[in-house]
Design a protein around this nucleic acid. Structure first.
Lengths: 246, 246
DNA sequence: TCAAAAGTGTTTAGTTTACACCCATGC
DNA sequence: GCATGGGTGTAAACTAAACACTTTTGA
């Protein structure tokens, strides 16, 4: 069946930039290898055409699930890309989303029109299809700035985490080392972490496990317009401690 | 001429939320009164269909100019709205932009398919067509948060302005009164304002006029990744001064 | 000389930074 | 008993907040 319109219309797609944290606390992006032309064989962001009767975010979630098996994750709209030359098939406008997931909970399984799906370290991104490099760059920029004033980082961690996990996450996203004591006091002062049990079976002093109290955060930020989740570190402190003790 | 596609495609539009400052330093939004159905007679954000061979921001600027005569202004993408029911004509996805202008430089003149165009105070917005109320709300939220860490406020002022103008602008956008002395020192400490001449022909002590040094800001923020334009006021100070002496 | 807005400096409170050593566990 | 990462307190430096009176001009 065909569809006819009086004026030409661009195609509308969605693309997802999915970030995950790997075992060694490095940030990775979920890419799929395209099976079909254009750019067959190239790696690309998961995404695809928006159906006429589905919402934009719904389309992003659907494509993400179909192509990578990832579902039920934090997703937010990033930006809409509409350069004339971004797709060789013609005028294609793409609404990009970014997602944050705990990588361990989302083993990838490719399906549908994606040949493979895999998690890539940020430093090892292959050449990407379309303008996906640009979309990825925008997504990185976005999470870098957003993590400073919204508690989105917790989406990348498992439910239970240690303060060291959290600190490493911030160090990864911000690309700078942070002072441990100051990080801990800053985070704990927000009073948004719930203390759980301690770690077990680690060959060092077991760390306290915490859980982010999302309900409390939402209550505070909606009720009290003043409340700001602000994690900002003005001066960095690279050299770790334990140095010259005379 | 007709255009036929294998799959149905949504229409793609752009909408612009244009903010301006009026003589009494109140924030206003530029609306047009629709001449055509749907929502004929209703007030709406300026906007319209994206042409197949024009960029999204280009489309936003074109529609803005055609419908209101406003051009050459600061424009940034806001969000893309794609609810299924947002337009009675069918599936219409709209990429929204917001613009900041100095109202005095942009006397409105309606044309094309807009019956009228006018500047409305934020407190006196009429019922709007489509989901434009939602778009407007998102734009207000965006400028409120963005003004705290990007120097977008200057886009609303004339080239030359006084510190009082700037303070009133911040008070308007943030919806809170600020302490004059603290505001002045905070702003001047950034060292991004150029001192010009003084006011003339005012019936009080003439104020110093300033100009925002955009080049310097851009140089600092690109070269020195650390530099942050941050204007944040933690406690407000409502009662103005000059009170009980003795 | 009055009204109206501009301009200015200092003290206090709060926040952020910098910094070094002991603790608990598994192997 | 040693290697590994976890955990802690305080003083100094800085930044933000609070606050009242004098200045300049036109009318």
């Amino acid at each position: 069946m065909n569809y006819t319109y009086e004026y030409p219309r661009p195609s509308l797609t969605v693309d997802c930039v999915v970030f995950g944290l790997d075992e060694s606390n490095e940030l990775r992006v979920l890419l799929i290898q395209r099976a079909l032309d254009p750019y067959a064989g190239y790696w690309a962001l998961p995404g695809g055409f928006v159906k006429i009767d589905e919402g934009l975010e719904d389309a992003a979630r659907r494509e993400l699930f179909e192509e990578t098996g990832v579902k039920d994750v934090f997703v937010e709209q990033l930006f809409t890309f509409g350069n004339m030359q971004r797709d060789p098939r013609g005028r294609v406008v793409s609404v990009a989303y970014y997602a944050l997931v705990n990588l361990k909970d989302h083993p990838v399984k490719a399906s549908t029109d994606a040949k493979h799906a895999d998690w890539f370290k940020l430093g090892e991104i292959p050449e990407l299809a379309f303008d996906h490099k640009e979309i990825l760059a925008k997504a990185i920029e976005r999470i870098r700035s957003k993590v400073l004033y919204k508690p989105i980082g917790f989406e990348l961690l498992p439910e239970k985490f240690t303060l060291s996990d959290l600190q490493k996450l911030y160090e990864t996203i911000l690309g700078q080392l942070l002072n441990r004591r100051n990080f801990r006091s800053k985070i704990l002062k927000l009073d948004l972490l719930e203390e759980l049990e301690r770690q077990t079976n680690v060959s060092h002093r077991p760390a306290q496990l915490y859980k982010f109290n999302k309900e409390k955060y939402e209550e505070l930020s909606s009720k009290d317009g003043e409340f700001i989740f602000e994690i900002r570190f003005h001066h960095r402190d690279n050299r770790e401690e334990g140095e010259n003790e005379v």
